[in-house]
Amino acid sequence: MKTDNRGRADRADAHYSLYLVVVLSVIWLGNSGHYSPLLLTFGVVSVALVVWIGRRMQVVDGESQPFHLSLRLLAYYGWLLRKIVESNIKVAACAWKGPRAISPVSGRVPCRLESDLSRVIYANSITLTPGTVTVSLDDGEVLVHALTESGLAELREGEMEGRVARLEQP
């Protein structure tokens, strides 16, 4: 995420720090429920401390806060939620039918996504849908364990990968 262009990088840095301040403030205000000056001061101090530590750790960037994708991410998570419901029903049926209904397989699924962010979103989505679990994420492929053959075959078809790839297209 570090670009050669220092000026642009600094501006982006300030941008993401501002996002972080807003998010942390909302979390503080929402969780505290007390708005006396003393507690608000504590809130400001904690937010400043967390942002300072985050910047020192160099984790305040587009990877930890992918806000540039937020609208598309929402649409994607809506689609993912439907997949989660479908696969939950399948796995629940397997659980009630017993061990004979399942045929665990593992295999490597090719992953042509380029940026780290989209690869992590992809692996995360695979793990999030019950019935498939990402075991490891290497260059160019993911090792997936699936509860049934059909789960693995569905991943190989690549609909989820295509949707993740479209997230980061300009």
């Binding site: 939950n88 796995v91 629940a92 659980a95 009630w96 061990p99 399942i102 019950p130 679990v133």
Partner: peptide
Amino acid sequence: GFFMVSGAIGLLRFPDFYSRMHAASMTDTL
């Protein structure tokens, strides 16, 4: 409640660790 109980049933009934993980992820998600 139904999905969580089915997940727990799967957690008990499935034969190996990775299959049990799928059952556990069902209780954690839906």
